[in-house]
Nucleic acid binder design. Sequence first.
DNA 1: GTTGACCTTAAAGTTCACTTTAAGGTTATG
DNA 2: CATAACCTTAAAGTGAACTTTAAGGTCAAC
Lengths: 133, 133
Amino acid sequence: MKTFNIGELSEKSGVASHAIRFYERENLMPEPARTQSNYRRYPEDAIARLQFIIHAKQWGFTLDEIRELLMLQDANGDRAEAKRIARKQLEKIRHQIQSLSRIEAVLSETLEECSGEGPMDGCPIVEAIAQQG
Amino acid sequence: MKTFNIGELSEKSGVASHAIRFYERENLMPEPARTQSNYRRYPEDAIARLQFIIHAKQWGFTLDEIRELLMLQDANGDRAEAKRIARKQLEKIRHQIQSLSRIEAVLSETLEECSGEGPMDGCPIVEAIAQQG
DNA sequence: GTTGACCTTAAAGTTCACTTTAAGGTTATG
DNA sequence: CATAACCTTAAAGTGAACTTTAAGGTCAAC
């Protein structure tokens, strides 16, 4: 099996070396083997683990939540737990979409009202912000 | 006209005294008058200005953007500028909604696939994260 | 054999939007 | 007249997720 040092892993995963060390300190990545000269040596599956982290981040999971998911995987834990975490995340995302949609509606309406000409005094955008966020 | 000290303004606006001083340092609030004993004295319209800041924050504007809007108002500047700032914000919000909607779709589909029973090995949630964020 | 590109650690810096702390001065109340 | 509840400043702390810096040790190429 191929093994990598941290620079190679960084290149293959797209995660900066320092971030990889940070994830190790934060218990997202396991402590890897070391060479005689104390260099980190990673097995191939470290790439997949880092990509899991990247993807979970893109889905909006925090590092705390990702750590939880990884610990469940490492322990081959209970699927119900993973589902609970994911369901919570889905709710969070739906809530965010709702808030943003409300803002989008008011903001786009306000933008249409504003001619974009003339002085600030009486500008519908400013007035919309001033009254009731 | 009534004037307030920082504690009264804090109570009326719902913004903590320290946050008000912070906004002053950050040039979102103007330097107020001072009493003989160097206490800040605010006019009534300071309440409206703080509420403008609160509302703009709720709309997702950063303090930098809010400062820009306030400076335009203070200078009675160009309405086109305010519109530009608001349009940028609208685009940002629409982009966020799109990203979140994509995530919502995949995550809710994945959640339905997962029985929530059994060990992590083979769990659709974990596999969905592992493949293609 | 030396240059340059790697690697090591610990610690400090970054951004955002504050909050908390420290160390005092002032004002209202009993 | 003392005590509590205000006010003042500057500076440090918070949290998230890293990045940057400092001060070295190691390894491959020429």
